[in-house]
Nucleic acid binder design. Structure first.
Length: 925
RNA sequence: GCCGAUGUGGUGAAAUGGCAGACACGACCGCCUCAAAAGCGGUUCCGAAAGGGUGUGGGUUCGACUCCCACCAUCGGCACCA
């Protein structure tokens, strides 16, 4: 027995205080050591830390700690993304200033974050809403403005009535804002933009990045690059000939363009429309404007459109073709106008058939009878040979996009020579709209002269401070427009009164951690030279096309403005390779999954038996489809969804009727063959996102009080694959509780001075297998197998100590390895037990144990004997057994003899032991 | 429609192309106890066994949860994108 048991509350408070007092997690530049910048996404100070924060941050901490023990100088900072709409919304509904609300939340959340026991260096904390921080957000804006990366422009923008502000494209999902899910409308407004598309191509290149495929895929889709050409048609308008430019990815089909379609909002529509068509066109435009607000998204909709009465000249063959308007052409993509090639594009084909327009085939697929424009049933979008196209006839159009297609390459060259078109890359990506008509954000450091021209405020006036005494109730205009002391700059000059999108603040926070109080630059170049770029970034996948893309753009933009130049010189002076060093902000990215609230539909059961009191004693329970539910009111039958089960007691249906399965009672589940068992029944469990309204929020503070931080950490790491997440189920915490209780007792055990060498060798072998397992698991973010490796060792240590054959020296060696392997995952108990062993502070500054394959090896192994790839027998053999011996033993084995039945194997494959696996012999019959 | 991810026991889940189900929860049996809890020991994919099992159907391979093709289901990104 131990003198006292494991009391997490005591030891966690004690060690957190000691770590802070000794500055154990202070990270400073040290050029003699390799660095590792581990970053986890900073929280928004919305009130309380939830279990998702723990799930994101504590495994990230374990990884950072592991890297530190592996010899890296690790930076693992934390801060608060403190500007933004939620603070303002909360402030409005509670009538409290956003400033007060935000800072109160930060106080609270900082304490909660500290309870995790993470190795955050709190001296590097940042808060994005303090002037010390946003001075530099403004400074970056100013640099962008001065270098034509920020501009003021009029554009159709996303306007949210609910939020009373404009939003970036990224913040609009299916026509609704991402915060409240309220409709967003298109409005023509003058706003601030960043030249996002300037880096589109570079952002499509992920060569330097170790990022998850789904994120790269989302970003690639979001940027939406397509190769093609711009071609200038001649519009015959009421004001004479006017150029009408279209973007096409299929310039090889130009000769098949038999009409044109413009988006109803296109500027040339009015000039093209003839008096006879005027009414129809106006009516269609009005209808489109209405439809935009509802749902213009539906892919299945039948084509609609109206003839403008006007014509254009196809520049390749001088053909006069009609110009239509239709809502399937989007004003926001390409040039808002298309050449329609009905024979080669299914949408154009449908449109042509509906309105009786001409179809001229220009790509003739091989192995098919010649296409006939009048009779073909659908467009041919694939490869083929060009026809009906003058000089291009006979060229191969191989189905590729861009210059890889010979026909497209030939046409582009020709268009450029003729001066009627040019090769063009078009992006789905729009420029980044960063102005917001709200109060709680970083001011935009711009002033307007009396003529309304924007000028940047001088550097010495930065930061433009956000005034506090503002009436911030939203009116559709920035609250700052009502604050005269703020907007009045000098005679006749006005300040910009919009504020910046908070994604601007979070695009560079990883730089401010480097030197949060630096007052002459956004960051100290020496710190940047050492720490940048971020080596490992962890956080949620929901930021794929927002924060993670903005931050990449931001990084590339400031790199080209020379912001990293000095850091680059310093890094080079220390012998670091600086080529491309600052091209990307985050080298490795890993996304955690989500902890959900629980879901599973229970089996629909029919229980039959005898009723006694309020209970049914069932001798048979059958799982059926709910549709087959009996319609009887027989009291000896209970049916419904299985909501819950405790041993042999079932709770059935919404009414939770009690059913007791009697001894010898049977269960039948048609999906599972054979005789079924009561514990095979599926019970109802709700899985959904945790939210306050659903009342399924798990409060981490309570869990910490109940189990301790180490248990919560380890359980979150153990419960699911970290990159997948899953439903929260507190019932399983007990496995981790037992593990730590056991560990406590085992390390406190009394052991004899000497033991049995064989048993000791076995224990040390188990320890080295653990090192390998825990280390490689943490390396690849596989936290659940790391914990499993530790538990496996616990089992070995427990069994060994029970036998009483472990001596003091072997015990200490094993415990030393064990505690150092535990330290990244459960830092408090590891530290406490390390101290208990009498070893010097701190376990966290110890090296991670070195894996010794020799010590991990055993003397005997199981030789796996396989027949046609199926394992049939295992033979215990000495570890160094050679191929001939192994094959002879395998051939002689009982199972093989049975399978051979007197014949000879066709082939014998020997698979030697490697990578900790057993040797195998496969016999092919 | 295009692109991507996922699919394994009663449950959470493991498995560089090499013993499928490690580790844990639950359940069952036993020990301990006057009793219960805790604890301890054992069993737990199906099958008596031979053998069969990783969403379905093919393929590659001596050998496939893993690689390839097609399909089904769920989730995510893009979407009348020219």
């Amino acid at each position: 027995m131990t003198e006292h048991s494991y009391q997490p509350a005591e030891i966690e408070a004690k060690w957190q205080a000691r770590w802070e007092a000794t500055q154990l997690y202070r990270s400073t530049v040290d050029w003699s050591k390799p660095k590792h910048y581990a970053l986890t996404m900073l929280p928004y100070p919305s009130g309380d830390l939830h279990i998702g924060h723990w799930f994101a941050m504590t495994p990230s901490d374990a990884r950072a700690r592991y890297m530190r023990m592996k010899g890296y100088n690790v930076l693992f900072p934390m801060g608060f993304d403190a500007f933004g709409l939620p603070a303002e919304q909360a402030a409005i509904s509670r009538n409290i200033h956003p400033w007060k609300w935000t800072y109160a939340n930060i106080e609270r959340m900082r304490a909660q974050l500290k309870s995790m026991g993470n190795m955050f260096d709190w001296q590097r904390e940042i808060v994005s809403s303090v002037p010390e921080y946003y001075k530099w957000t403004e400074w970056f804006f100013k640099r962008f403005f001065e270098n034509d990366l920020a501009y003021r422009g009029e554009a159709l923008v996303n306007w949210s009535d609910a939020l009373q502000t404009v939003l970036a494209n990224e913040q609009v999902i299916d026509g609704k804002d991402e915060r409240l899910g309220q409709p967003v409308v298109q409005k023509l407004m003058t706003q601030w933009f960043f030249r996002y598309t300037r880096y589109a191509d570079e952002m499509l290149n992920f060569d330097k990045l170790d990022w998850p495929e789904p994120i790269r895929n989302s970003q690639t889709n979001w940027i939406g690059r397509s190769e093609g050409a711009k071609v200038t048609f001649k519009a015959l308008t009421s004001h004479g000939e006017q150029p009408l430019v279209v973007f096409t990815t299929r310039p090889d089909t130009l000769w098949g363009a038999t009409f044109m379609v413009l988006a109803p909002e296109h500027p040339l529509v009015d000039a093209l429309t003839t008096p006879e068509q005027r009414d129809a066109v106006e009516a269609y435009k009005a209808a489109t404007a209405r439809a935009t607000e509802i749902e213009r998204l539906s892919t299945e909709r039948e084509k609609t459109g109206v003839f403008t009465g006007g014509y254009a000249i196809n520049p390749v063959n001088q053909k006069r073709i009609p110009v239509w308007i239709a809502d399937y052409v989007m004003i926001s993509y390409g040039t808002g106008a298309i050449m329609a090639v009905p024979a080669g594009d299914q949408r154009d084909f449908e449109f042509a058939r509906k309105f009786g327009l001409e179809v001229v085939p220009v790509v003739q697929p091989a192995d098919q009878p010649p296409l006939n424009g009048a009779t073909m049933a659908e467009a041919w979008e694939g490869a083929g040979v060009i026809v009906n196209s003058d000089w291009l006839d006979g060229t191969l159009s191989n189905g590729e996009k861009g210059r890889k297609n010979p026909a497209i390459a030939a046409v582009i060259d020709w268009l450029e020579a003729q001066g009627i078109g040019s090769e063009t890359i078009n992006y789905r990506l729009r420029d980044w709209l960063i102005s917001r008509q709200r109060y709680w954000g970083s001011p935009i450091p711009i002033v307007y002269d009396p003529q309304g021209q924007p000028h940047a405020v001088p550097d010495e006036e930065l930061p433009v401070e956000l005034p506090e005494d503002v009436d911030f109730v939203p009116t559709g205009r920035s609250p700052l427009t009502y604050h005269e002391p703020f907007f009045k700059y000098k005679d006749g000059w006005r300040r910009e009164t919009d504020t910046m999108d908070t994604f601007m603040c979070s695009s560079w926070y990883h730089l401010r951690y480097l030197s949060p109080h630096c007052d002459h630059a956004p960051f100290d170049p020496e710190e940047a030279a050492y720490w940048l770029p971020v080596d490992t970034y962890t956080g949620g996948a929901e930021h794929a096309t927002m924060h993670l893309l903005y931050a990449r753009w931001f990084n590339k933009a400031i790199r080209d403005l020379g912001v990293f130049d000095e850091a680059k010189k310093i890094a080079a002076a220390h012998g670091r390779s600086v080529d491309g060093l600052f091209d990307e902000p985050y080298l490795q990215l890993r996304n955690q999954g989500q902890v959900l609230g629980g879901k599973r539909i229970g089996d629909y059961v029919v229980c039959r038996g005898r009723r006694e009191g309020g209970k049914l004693y069932a001798d048979h329970v059958e799982v059926i489809a709910p549709i087959d539910a009996p319609t009887t009111d027989d009291p000896t039958v209970v049916h419904g969804e299985l909501m819950k089960r405790v041993e042999h007691t079932l709770f059935v249906g919404e009414a939770m009727q009690l059913v007791e399965l009697v001894a010898g009672g049977t269960v039948s589940i048609p999906d599972i063959e054979g005789e079924n068992n009561v514990n095979q029944l599926k019970q109802h469990l709700e899985v959904m996102r945790m939210s306050k309204s659903k009342g399924n929020v798990v409060n981490p503070d309570e869990l910490v009080r109940k189990y301790g931080a180490d248990t919560v950490r380890a359980y979150l790491m153990f419960a699911f694959d970290w990159q997948m997440g899953g439903p929260w189920d507190e019932a399983n915490v007990v496995g981790v509780t037992r593990w730590l209780d056991d560990t406590w007792a085992l390390v406190h055990a009394t052991v004899p001075p000497t033991g049995d060498p064989a048993a000791e060798r076995d224990l040390i072998r188990a320890a080295h297998q653990m090192i390998d397992r825990v280390g490689s698991s943490l390396e690849r973010f596989s936290f659940n197998t790391a914990v499993a490796g530790l538990m496996t060792f616990r089992n070995a240590l427990k069994a060994a100590l029970r036998e009483g054959q472990i001596g003091r020296a072997a015990f200490e060696e094993a415990v030393s390895v064990y505690l150092r392997c535990m330290a990244p995952i459960t830092p408090h108990i590891a530290e406490e037990l390390w101290e208990h062993m009498g070893w010097p502070y701190s376990v966290h500054t110890q090296p991670f144990p070195e894996y010794d394959p020799e010590k991990a090896k055993s003397d005997m192994v199981e030789l796996v004997v396989m027949v046609n790839g199926k394992p049939r027998e295992k033979l215990l053999v000495p570890v160094g057994i050679d191929e001939a011996q192994a094959e002879a033993l395998a051939l002689a084995s009982e199972a093989v003899q049975r399978h051979l039945n007197g014949s000879q194997p066709k082939r014998v494959v020997h698979i030697p032991a490697r990578g900790g696996q057993e040797p195998k012999v496969n016999l092919v019959l």
